[in-house]
Design a protein around this nucleic acid. Structure first.
Lengths: 350, 350
DNA sequence: ATGAAAGCGCTAACAT
DNA sequence: ATGTTAGCGCTTTCAT
């Protein structure tokens, strides 16, 4: 068994390619990186050598010198786990919202050749680990999806000096670039629609009041209703989950049995709410008109299909990725935040 | 403005720490990496210097020499996108299953200091990108969640020589280590339970027949029923989504209006099915007993709470991570696959 | 347009 | 137990 007849166990390096092509390492590097000043003939020779040696660049080596990693962290920050032994909840992961965020990010990141490291922060340990990791310089930037208003993470991440973009404004870190939908405008769309339908005995299943999105949608809805002269808004707080939406709807119905219109602050909660309304003998939309928020897959899975406030999550997260890449590559400093406009998608529930 | 009074723009290196501590780089490295043969006094001095310089190791440099990256890829392989312009579907991301997989992996990975790079493969381009990325050696191993039976990815990944573990057996790559639940046994639990309840006019909403899990659950259910002398199984194919479950249930009901028991191959589909049954005037479990599969959050969100076959996804994916780490760190070759036992969780739907 | 050479920050022999 | 030293594979001046 002649050693040099076999393919090398060790993957090919620039050196190997250079030897095969009969050029210097530098030239190979230039070809690999698309530097324009390379003789076309040589370029071809090199490319063939690359092929022959099955060369792929070593990212660690490259990263060591360029100080770029071509990857960003997608950080999901959730409320602390209930207890050590409690089963993981991971609400964020089961929410269609998360998938849409990933999709939008990937749409921009993949063509740019940037990878995404997924990190979950749900206690102090994991937070410290995250910050250490970020400081190790293994990512070029951070996209953060944080669930609670009091979360210190946005500020801490900004403190690392790494480029960062938030999904949604953080009350604790106003200096950080964010992308979000105009929550007030969205809630207003819902209010106007219900009122235009002639509904007056209106209620809402709000999101968690310790989340900015939950607060803003409730506040916006209440304000818009007030503008229509409706001041007694019945509401119940849900947790943005299916089950939470069902439970909150039960409470709401108990408090306000004569309800004829309801705004539910997320489609997932609306999915939980509809069967509750049905069981309570209310026909949607005849007895109770229902407007959701998000326009996720869940809205279509509802029965009847859900009228809802559309939040262009994919476009929003694509924009997050763009801001991040611009900031990473760019000489320019902080990017301005971006606020998207919601729209009303009318289906059958209202 | 005196330059050296300011904190250095450049992050501290081993060299810096060594200088401050008055020792060699090697000693600092030993302290950082917990080598036992270091004088306790020196260790303290070094640790102080680390503190003072705010030193954090550079991962790229370390990785370049150790040839380890302390990260693995979580690859999610989905059916090719419908069209270029079609909105991203990302079924996997909205499924509670995905969150549970991530949770289980993280449970093992985080204490081990291993990061997770999330990669989505949904067309040829992204597949090629993935394979190139893997060959660049930026991850030490791969955990793969693949949705379709004909997926060539398991084999291709194994072909890279990187340690890999699959969530679920792949018909195309029998040589790859996998972790899965005994699907047949699970389906049998469902069948036995329905029969023990006295149900005889039984149907099933199966999963996609181009997914191993979809096939196996149908096959197992049919076999178990046959053992009870029931041979005329009505079934409809769903796609493991809520909406798909609803649609399939409608078809099933049309075909078999006298149905008194049904096995639905995922909780998410069961969630879609229950309102359909209710609308059709069937009370669950009185008229139709329903058994799901998964025991995810969805099962509890059902009304009535779902009797279901429990699949210990978190433990399974934790085991995937363990196998992977063992294989990565280990001298031993291929790890044996692991099959978990399902159990029946009886609630109110059957 | 190409090559030579100097590191990037770290670990792991090896020597002491 | 600690220090010295030789790279890991790559990019990037700086010459030519």
């Amino acid at each position: 068994m002649t050693a040099d007849a076999l393919p090398p166990a060790r993957p090919a390096t620039l050196e190997d390619v250079a030897r095969v092509a009969g050029v210097s390492r530098a030239t190979v590097s230039r070809v690999i990186n698309g530097t324009p000043t390379v003789d076309p003939a040589l370029r071809r020779t090199v490319l063939e050598a690359v092929e022959a040696t099955r060369y792929v660049p070593n990212r660690a080596a490259r990263s060591l010198v360029t100080r770029r990693t071509d990857s960003i962290a997608l950080v999901v920050s959730e409320q602390e786990r209930r207890s050590v032994s409690a089963p993981f909840v991971g609400r964020m992961f089961s929410d269609p919202y998360f998938g849409r965020v990933v999709a939008g990010l990937l749409d921009v990141l993949r063509p740019a050749g940037v990878q995404m490291v997924l990190m979950l922060v749900d206690d102090e340990t994991s937070r410290d680990q995250l910050l250490a990791y970020l400081r190790q310089g293994h990512v070029d930037g951070v996209a953060l999806v944080s669930s609670h208003a009091a979360d210190p993470l946005p500020g801490l991440i900004t403190g690392t000096g790494l480029p960062a973009v938030l999904a949604g404004r953080s009350p604790r870190s106003t200096g950080t670039t964010y992308v979000e939908v105009d929550q007030h405008a969205g809630a207003q769309l819902a209010a106007d629609h219900l009122v235009s339908l002639g509904r007056r005995r209106i209620g809402t299943v709000a999101g968690p009041q310790d989340m900015p999105a939950g607060q803003a949608r409730l506040e916006g809805f209440r304000g818009a209703l007030a503008a229509h002269g409706i001041d007694d808004l019945a509401w119940a707080e849900g947790d943005f989950t299916h089950a939470g939406g069902a439970a909150a709807t039960k409470r709401l119905l108990a408090e306000r049995p004569d309800l004829d219109g309801v705004f539910i602050a997320s489609d997932l909660m609306a999915m939980g709410a509809l069967p509750v309304l049905a069981r309570a003998g209310r026909t949607v939309p005849r007895d109770v008109a229902v407007v959701g928020f998000d326009d996720s897959d869940a809205a279509l899975a509802c029965d009847p299909p859900l009228t809802t406030v559309r939040q262009p999550v994919e476009e929003m997260s694509a924009e997050m990725a763009r801001l991040l890449l611009r900031r990473i590559g760019g000489t320019d400093g902080l990017q301005p935040s971006v606020v998207f406009h919601p729209s009303l998608v009318v289906r059958e529930s209202a």
